[in-house]
């Protein structure tokens, strides 16, 4: 359950990720796909902070992913910001939005929470869609690209080299994931799990439930916005689809597909989902049906996800 406990799994995941651009080609992938898996994996793991470890059903995380993406893209396009300040700005915008909206919805639970988050997610979609002059509307925000990062002594050319960008994203991924693991093993994280397991009992123990859920929501949205900013940098582009509700649903299915009770599960789910989407959409126009079928099959046959199943198999 805890990211720090299963050391062998951590090392294995680390090694796999460290060499992903190299073995990706051998199985028919490409470096950009590896980066996309990394970014979506971070998004799904961030969502799972709330979904799997706090037990709160958010179906609107695309909003904060998209705010991170637009924040970073607009910072580069309009302010000429460097890569790191752009990511920071995306995080800031998304986190502020999450703080306000979180305060409005934190008392809702279960289906009600899900519905409210879905609906609120659409505000930003329509903002991006309608506010043509600034966001580029439906066509998306173009005319900018990520810039090489200058460290003074050396320059990392994340624009010219796909691999350089991958490793740049991997470092950020690592920092975010380590931060989430630390948070989850802290008293704060333990309290979140207590809320997930038995909210009423936690309340009787004097835990301020609403504040904890709000904070978990904000933390989750903060990390998901980092993924969003990376996604915009990866594509040198962002459009309203980065904010739309289908992305929210996709993030949830990634978490469930991999196993939302485990720390790394959502990353595995994201890898499967992104690779499948890439594979299917290059072969058939009807890829939406295939993706839909994945949802149905996962719910009916693998509700505990890949890691959940492996764990059951290991016990048996």
């Amino acid at each position: 359950m805890n990211g720090l406990r299963g050391h062998r799994l951590n090392v294995a995941v680390g090694i796999i990720l460290l060499f992903m651009p190299f073995w990706m080609g051998a199985i028919g992938g490409y470096t950009e796909l590896a980066s996309r898996i990394l970014v979506m994996g971070l998004a799904a793991m961030s969502l799972n902070f709330l979904l799997g470890f706090t037990g709160v059903l958010s179906f609107g995380h695309a909003a904060y992913f998209g705010l991170g993406a637009y924040g970073a893209a607009m910072a580069i396009k309009y302010l000429g910001a460097g890569t790191m300040p752009a990511i920071a700005l995306g995080m800031l915008v998304a986190t502020l939005a999450a703080m306000v909206i979180g305060a409005l919805i934190v008392r809702r639970r279960g289906v009600y929470f899900a519905m409210v988050t879905i609906a609120f997610g659409q505000v930003f979609y329509f903002l991006a869609f309608r506010w043509n002059s600034v966001t580029g509307g439906d066509d998306g925000l173009t005319g900018w690209h990520r810039a090489p990062i200058d460290f003074g002594v050396a320059t990392l050319d994340i624009f010219g080299s796909d691999k350089a960008f991958y490793y740049f994203a991997l470092v950020i991924f690592g920092v975010c994931v380590a931060a989430m693991a630390l948070l989850l093993s802290s008293p704060f994280g333990r309290t979140l799990i207590a809320i997930r397991e038995n909210e009423r009992r936690a309340r009787f123990l004097g835990v301020p439930i609403e504040f904890h859920i709000w904070l978990s929501f904000v933390v989750s949205c903060l990390f998901v916005s980092v993924a969003g900013a990376l996604y915009a940098l990866l594509n040198n582009f962002t459009d309203p689809r980065a904010l739309r509700f289908d992305l929210s649903g996709n993030l949830v299915i990634m978490a469930v597909l991999g196993g939302m009770r485990s720390f790394w599960g959502p990353l595995i789910g994201a890898a499967i989902f992104v690779a499948l989407q890439d594979f299917v959409s290059s072969r058939t126009e009807n890829w939406m049906s295939v993706i839909g079928l994945v949802f149905v099959l996962v719910v009916r046959f693998f509700p505990r996800g890949v890691l959940g199943m492996l764990r059951n198999a290991a016990k048996a």
Binding site: L57, V111, V252, V294, V298
Partner: peptide
């Protein structure tokens, strides 16, 4: 066929299943 088995369970699964159905409907 699809929704009845989910009654009484975590609302997450009903939401995900119908979400997938929405994809399939639109595509079909």
């Amino acid at each position: 066929v699809l929704i009845r088995p989910l009654y009484g369970g975590d609302p997450l699964y009903g939401l995900l299943l119908t979400f997938g159905l929405a994809y399939i409907f639109e595509d079909v």
